[in-house]
């Protein structure tokens, strides 16, 4: 099937199998920033933004995304650099495998919620698992980045 995806603001016509998920299609198109850890929409590692909202690309049918906007880390370099700096300075990036999906979710959160508190941040990011960091460093980094004090 032919579908049209606007990936990082560039329109692309792509041939996909109807059962293919976004993750496979995007990797095939060279967006290797996207990682997969579970394949069952349980970990958030494969997160991409669909019309600005985080979705699990491992479980999202590519055909369902036809005509929509997809954002990967490659498409928001500046924002990624900005948040990434806080993450790295905090030492919160360990193996880094969860980082791209995490960053995209932080960006969506920033756009969606005004002035979140610690609990609000935790709730929004709850779908992003990280086995390395123990989460506290990520939280410290995001709080600093967003200027959340408590």
């Amino acid at each position: 099937m032919k579908i049209n995806l606007k990936i990082n603001n560039i329109n692309r016509d792509i041939d996909v199998e109807p059962g293919e998920v976004l993750y496979d299609v995007l990797r095939r198109c060279g967006f290797t920033s996207i990682k997969k850890a579970c394949g069952t929409s349980s970990c958030g590692v494969c997160t991409v933004l669909l019309d600005g909202m985080p979705v699990p690309s491992c479980s999202y049918l590519a055909v369902k995304a036809d005509g929509h906007n997809i954002t990967t880390i490659e498409g928001i370099k500046e924002e990624a650099d900005r948040i990434g700096k806080f993450m790295v300075e905090e030492g919160a990036v360990q193996c880094g495998f969860c980082s791209p999906g995490f960053l995209l979710t932080v960006i969506a959160m920033e756009r969606e919620i005004e002035n979140p508190d610690s609990q609000g941040i935790k709730n929004y990011l709850a779908g992003n698992l990280c086995r390395c960091s123990g989460y506290e460093g990520q939280l410290r980094a995001v709080k600093k980045y967003m200027g959340v004090s408590e």
């Binding site: 997160t47 985080p54 929004y124 709850a126």
Partner: peptide
């Protein structure tokens, strides 16, 4: 609804 997994799944 907020008990269910993460925002990624709930957006889907």
């Amino acid at each position: 609804l907020s008990c269910i997994m993460g925002v990624q799944l709930r957006n889907t």
